[in-house]
């Protein structure tokens, strides 16, 4: 099972608004999910043209973890660079 992004969209937007982050940018990010986690990664449209021949990880800009009925946000070193 995977955490559903749409279920937490409102909370993510609120978090972005409260922390000076651009929600519209997050919507365009690579999104990955596990059972209790969502990650957002920046995708440079000028890169990745080599497909699976270039597996350089995309920078993680925001992490969300589910804790009980709530979610916790974790910024990274790339958050301000790509979401501010």
């Amino acid at each position: 099972m995977c955490m559903e992004y749409s279920k937490y969209a409102d909370k993510i937007k609120t978090y972005c608004d409260n922390n000076g982050l651009d929600f519209s940018k997050i919507k365009k990010m690579i999104k990955g999910c596990g059972a209790d986690d969502i990650i957002f990664q920046y995708h440079d449209p000028e890169k990745g043209k080599m497909g699976l021949l270039d597996e350089t990880p995309a920078p993680v800009v925001l992490k969300i973890s589910r804790i009980g009925n709530d979610i916790k946000f974790e910024q990274t070193e790339y958050t301000r660079q790509y979401l501010a």
């Binding site: 990664q41 990745g48 043209k49 497909g51 270039d54 597996e55 350089t56 995309a58």
Partner: peptide, 11 residues
């Protein structure tokens, strides 16, 4: 290791 790459998204 679980993080998709730039290329993964384009694929």
């Amino acid at each position: 290791c679980l993080m998709p790459s730039k290329g993964d998204k384009d694929i």
